[in-house]
């Protein structure tokens, strides 16, 4: 057997063993509530066919994209400015560092207070969550630009703003990309948390999204199979978002190895 095939077999052995053990234990337990892998698959097929799951995911995604866009539009220019000007960095950094340790979900109560339980509050949470990784990585990217490249551009007589556009931005792009990827990850986590919390605490309502859907399955019917479908969907969407972003960054930076 080839080495690669052996590796695949090894990799699959544990998940398969765990699934079999879960199924066996579930069958042995004789409980109606006990989730089973086979039931999870059936529930997934149901939720996809009825369109509930795709709709909920789309709802959550639209919020993530909106909040992510807001965060990027503010964080990238601000980060570039902070990274290329010591004065701006010194004065703005205290604010960034003071708010960074406050988890996005902690400001959910304020967001609900200010914007209600709908989409606006969710977008605010996402934007807040994604803002910090993007701004911090942009600053470090802009500060980490090889100083010889800056000198080379200035010996060719380029004005300062032109240098930021033609040297600092492309040189910082890999770091900005890292920030965007981390930001997208936390944004997705934040939206699930926000929707869950809104579902749990703000009396539910029509806020929707995958997080809300999970909570409804818990609170009103205790359908564990369906909850697990949602969990898997959360994981798959996280992977897909990261893969998409990585592809976009690769297309944007053909020079990167």
């Amino acid at each position: 057997m080839s080495d690669a095939a052996l590796r695949v077999m090894r990799g699959l052995s544990l998940p398969i063993a765990l699934l079999i053990a879960w199924q066996a234990a579930g069958l042995a337990a004789h409980s109606v509530r006990m989730p089973l892998p086979t039931h999870v698959v059936a529930a997934a097929a149901d939720l996809v066919r009825s369109g509930e799951l795709p709709l909920a995911i789309l709802q959550s995604l639209s919020r993530v994209f909106a909040g992510f866009a807001v965060a990027s539009v503010i964080a990238i220019p601000l980060g570039l400015l902070m990274g290329s000007s010591r004065g701006v960095e010194r004065n703005v950094d205290p604010l960034v560092e003071s708010f960074r340790p406050i988890a996005a979900i902690a400001i959910l109560p304020l967001a609900i207070l200010w914007l209600g339980t709908g989409t606006a509050a969710a977008v605010m949470i996402v934007a807040y969550a994604a803002f910090f990784p993007i701004v911090i990585n942009t600053v470090s990217g802009a500060k980490g630009v090889n100083s010889t490249l800056l000198r080379a551009a200035s010996t060719m007589g380029l004005p300062r703003l032109r240098i930021i556009r033609t040297v600092v931005v492309p040189a910082a792009l890999p770091a900005i990309g890292v920030g965007l990827r981390i930001g997208m990850g936390v944004a997705w986590t934040a939206i699930v948390a926000a929707e869950l919390a809104v579902g749990a605490k703000a009396g539910g309502g029509g806020s929707g999204g995958i997080g809300q859907m999970m909570f409804v399955f818990y609170a009103y019917s205790i359908e564990l199979n369906r909850i697990i479908v949602c969990m898997v969907a959360v994981g798959l969407v996280a992977l897909a978002l990261d893969a998409l972003l990585r592809l976009a960054l690769r297309l944007l930076m053909p020079w990167a190895r």
Partner: peptide, 28 residues
């Protein structure tokens, strides 16, 4: 201050990694 009348060639090349050969040569 630096000016285009004096061109500099740096020790570690100082090529812009995001520009291909044509882009680097034509940068200035």
């Amino acid at each position: 201050r630096p000016g285009p009348a004096r061109g500099v060639m740096f020790q570690d090349y100082a090529l812009f990694p995001w520009q291909n050969v044509r882009g680097n040569v034509g940068f200035g």
